[in-house]
């Protein structure tokens, strides 16, 4: 029989129904018999991804990160995308899909976090490696479906100095005493910013936190996508209520406007 292999989830069927689980165990823990009563959502989330119950400081770090990321606010491109769904009355899932698609990117999104986490894996707490790496401009890979990031991952391409919420988040998370990455980043932030020529961004703090939580870059990418959805959802619903007349439509300036066309208009040359 073909089966789904899993190290995460174990089920026992009800005696009278093979399609209903009598018990569910997540990484060995009884979900409905025990975790439901004894674990927090954040602990359960950590367990699902990392396979072990978190230490108290790990749970506190993930909780803090979840709050910091939960709502980047309506100016964020991913939330903006979700609101575009909400304002037109699109389905709820499409609003979240829009937020995921836009928030997946290498500029402010999950791809950026993943790339920054790869940097943490390669450079660790070696300042010289960071300074050398940050001096190299990211290059486009024409074989990749991901457009080239225009800035080093984890830094704000348009920032002037490190934004207050980023500083607040870094200071708080670094103070939780979970792993060395955040503390090292907190201590060396100015030097790294100087090497990058840009201020640290929230993606950089998230990458360091996820690294301290023992996540792989792929796990970090997923968690970042997941943790930013609450704000996107709430703002999409809110804009649905406000309606499209209260939502910016913006202005377009066409550089090649043919103007109102009389008759058949101009024709295009055929390729080849």
């Amino acid at each position: 029989m073909e089966t789904i292999h899993t190290r995460i989830w174990q089920e026992e069927a009800e005696p009278d129904n093979a399609f209903a689980a009598q018990s569910c165990h997540c990484h060995g823990y009884d979900v409905y018999g025990e975790l439901l009563k004894q674990a927090s959502w954040i602990e359960y989330l950590f367990l699902m991804f990392r396979g072990e119950a978190p230490a108290p400081e790990q749970a506190r770090l993930l909780e803090g990160l979840a709050i910091a990321l939960a709502n980047p606010g309506p100016r964020d491109a991913a939330v903006h995308a979700a609101m575009c769904g909400g304002v037109g009355g699109s389905t709820s899932a499409s609003c979240l899909m829009a937020a995921l698609a836009v928030g997946a990117g290498a500029s402010g999104g999950a791809r950026e976090v993943m790339l920054a986490m790869e940097n943490w894996n390669e450079r660790g707490a070696d300042l010289a490696l960071w300074q050398t790496g940050l001096a190299i401009k990211p290059v486009a890979d024409p074989a990749s479906v991901w457009p080239a990031p225009g800035h080093p991952p984890g830094f704000d391409p348009y920032g002037v100095r490190c934004a207050t919420p980023v500083l607040q988040t870094l200071a708080h998370l670094a103070g939780l005493g979970c792993g060395i990455t955040l503390a090292w980043l907190h201590e060396h932030r100015a030097l790294l910013e100087s090497a990058a020529g840009l201020p640290l961004a929230m993606t950089g703090v998230a990458a360091a936190a996820l690294h301290d939580l023992g996540c792989t870059p792929a796990q970090g990418e997923m968690l970042f996508l997941l943790l930013r959805l609450p704000g996107a959802a709430a703002h999409a619903l809110e804009q649905k209520d406000y309606g499209h007349k209260n939502f910016p439509f913006f202005r377009i300036e066409l550089e090649n406007d043919p103007g109102p066309v009389q008759g058949v208009g101009k024709h295009i040359e055929v390729n080849a």
Partner: peptide, 13 residues
Amino acid sequence: LPCRMLSYEGAPR
């Protein structure tokens, strides 16, 4: 998918 189609290979209870 019936429960028996999950092949659990993880930590013991």
